[in-house]
Amino acid sequence: MDRINGVWIFHGEGGRFSSGVFLTKATAEDWINQRQLSGTLTLYPLDIGVYDWSLEKGYFVIEKEEHNKATFIQRFTTGSQEHYHYEDGRLD
């Protein structure tokens, strides 16, 4: 997996919105561990949407007409981003 220039975003379990944005994974993990949080920490690329980034890197291929629609793009996520799962502050 390519290393990207980005930020680490923590999305807590059951949360509707992200609850933290960090420049380094170490800082994010310290915060997660100290507060015994559960959720996902994901590295997001800067200045490009995840949908476009995935297309550019070849991680996603448009196969259906709906893949070009806003309703699809605005909910798009990919497992190709570097990400980690935590349970009660510990790496799962």
Rank of each mutant, 00 (worst) to 15 (best):
F60A: 00
E56Y: 15
N68W: 14
R35N: 02
F10C: 02
F76W: 03
L43Y: 05
E56W: 15
R90T: 11
H67A: 04
I48L: 05
R16N: 12
H67G: 03
H83D: 13
G89W: 10
D30V: 09
R90H: 11
E13F: 13
R90Q: 12
T27Q: 15
L43S: 06
S18I: 02
N68R: 06
R3G: 06
I9H: 02
T77V: 14
H11F: 04
S54C: 05
P45M: 11
H83V: 04
K69D: 08
N68V: 12
K57N: 09
N33Q: 15
L37C: 04
H11K: 13
G89M: 04
S54Y: 00
D92V: 13
T77F: 13
I9M: 06
D88V: 03
E65F: 01
W53V: 04
M1D: 10
R75S: 09
V21C: 14
D88K: 09
T40Q: 13
T77K: 14
G6T: 02
T78H: 08
H11P: 05
Y51I: 08
G6N: 09
L46P: 02
F22N: 10
F72K: 06
L55H: 03
T77I: 14
G20E: 03
G49F: 00
F76P: 13
T77R: 12
G20V: 02
Y44L: 07
R75W: 11
H11A: 08
S18G: 13
G49K: 02
R16W: 09
A70L: 14
F10Y: 02
T40S: 11
H83K: 08
Y86I: 11
R3E: 13
V61W: 15
G20M: 07
R3K: 14
Y84H: 07
D2G: 04
K57T: 14
Q74S: 14
Q34F: 03
D92Q: 04
T27P: 05
Y44N: 01
L37Y: 03
F76E: 15
E29N: 06
G49S: 09
A26T: 08
N68E: 14
F76I: 07
F72M: 01
T77D: 06
Y86C: 05
S54G: 08
F72G: 00
G58T: 04
R3V: 08
V7K: 01
R16L: 11
V7W: 04
T78E: 04
Q81P: 06
A26M: 10
G79Y: 03
H67Y: 04
L37D: 05
G79S: 14
L43D: 03
K64R: 15
N33A: 12
F76A: 07
I32R: 00
V50H: 01
G6K: 09
K64Y: 06
S18E: 11
I32C: 02
D52N: 08
L46R: 05
K25L: 04
R90D: 10
S18K: 06
F72V: 00
Q74V: 12
Q74G: 10
G14H: 07
V61P: 01
F76N: 14
G89V: 10
L41T: 03
Q34E: 13
G12Y: 00
K57Q: 05
E87N: 10
Y51W: 07
